[in-house]
């Protein structure tokens, strides 16, 4: 990749979009300064060993706006998001921490609602919120409330990306784009509404349902940056190409309509309750069977395969049978003029 030649070297919103600018920031700032073997894996979390136990450890900050959206809120998101990061690392999520940054003037009722939502989410996912911290900043110093959660879990099965080989199949647990569309529309910046609700859900049970199948090699939740970004991260991690089939990737009518109106590509939209699984071809029948038995995976499909001959690129076989590159997002998705 060419070097960053950002004219003024300021952090832009696009650096937080999960696309290639985010990746460059990680490489050029964090890896450079914090470099160690755990971090350089560039996974969603780290696997560390303590007293002979393999522990998965991850952290994530939640700044979603608005803080309440159809299908969830910032509290529930902060619990499920971290649970999911642990789950796709092949771990059983156990304990979660919670750091709150609150803007002065927030209604206490709102905070109570968020706390209740976090408690319910923790109960559903089977984790405990065991430690926390609260800071209040002056008006304008934050936008209502930000939440950071960290989580630990015991690794049941390690799923290193380099276990993936050409010929392995890519499975997706359901349709894409619902979370980002529901949040986007909840901002009420558009003169139209939709029925789309966020897919926010804990993936730990769906993950553990298939962890026992021999041949399950890798899992990832396609959150910020969407399915396309996740596939590119996998391709980059293994140095092999991936071919995916557009007609196998579910997009609900509501999401498709919003994308058509605003000129967005659903493959780059964030999900919070979907899972990408890479599995050996001969076990896909069993994996699909198990995933489809779980309500969160009932629409699971094989959407593509790992291919040696694509020069490490992710390609899309389009609905009409053509082929194109499915690259990482360059920055924010910008709505078009016409």
């Amino acid at each position: 990749m060419p070097p960053i030649t950002n004219m003024h070297k300021k952090i832009l919103l696009a650096h937080g979009s999960g696309g290639s600018l985010s990746h460059r920031l990680i490489d050029e700032v964090f890896l450079k300064n914090f470099n160690n073997p755990f971090l350089s894996e560039k996974d969603d979390g780290a696997v560390v060993e303590i007293g002979g136990t393999r522990l998965a450890f991850t952290t994530d900050s939640y700044v979603v706006k608005p803080i309440f959206f159809p299908g969830g809120d910032i509290g529930k998101l902060s619990v499920f998001g971290t649970v999911n990061d642990l789950a796709v690392m092949g771990a059983e999520p156990l304990y979660i921490s919670c750091g709150l940054i609150i803007e002065e003037g927030l209604d206490q009722g709102v905070l109570e609602e968020i706390a209740l939502s976090m408690a319910q989410a923790a109960q559903i996912a089977g984790v405990l919120l065991v430690t926390g911290d609260t800071k209040v900043v002056e008006k304008g110093g934050a936008d209502r409330i930000y939440i950071n959660t960290s989580g630990v879990g015991i690794v049941k099965k390690e799923l290193p990306v380099n276990g993936i080989e050409a010929g392995d199949r890519i499975i997706l647990s359901g349709s894409v784009g619902e979370h980002e569309v529901s949040v986007l529309l909840a901002r009420e910046e558009f003169p139209f509404r939709s029925q789309v609700t966020s897919d926010l859900a804990p993936l730990n049970r769906l993950a553990s349902d298939i962890l026992g199948v021999d041949g399950v090699k890798f899992m990832r939740d396609p959150t910020r940056g969407g399915l396309a970004t996740t596939l590119n991260e996998i391709a980059e991690g293994i140095g092999l190409g991936i071919m995916v089939y557009e007609d196998k990737i579910g997009v609900s009518d509501g999401v498709a309509a919003v994308c058509e109106l605003l000129g967005l590509d659903p493959l780059y939209l964030a999900n919070e309750g979907k899972m990408v699984v890479v599995a050996k071809q001969d076990c896909t029948g069993e994996v699909l069977k198990r995933m489809r038995q779980n309500p969160l995976g009932k629409e699971s499909e094989i959407i593509g395969e790992v291919a040696a001959e694509l020069n490490g690129r992710v390609c899309l076989r389009t609905k009409i049978g053509g082929t194109r590159i499915l690259d990482m997002l360059a920055g924010e998705q910008l709505p078009r003029i016409c």
């Binding site: 004219m7 003024h8 300021k10 919103l13 709505p335 078009r336």
Partner: peptide, 28 residues
């Protein structure tokens, strides 16, 4: 419109201006 944010002028861009705290609203 959003498309204009990243278009380079002779020096800066609207995206860079926004990062510098200038008031720029993306409309549809």
């Amino acid at each position: 419109f959003g498309d204009m944010m990243r278009v380079p002028g002779s020096g800066s861009s609207l995206e860079t201006q926004r990062a510098a705290g200038k008031k720029i609203a993306v409309v549809y």
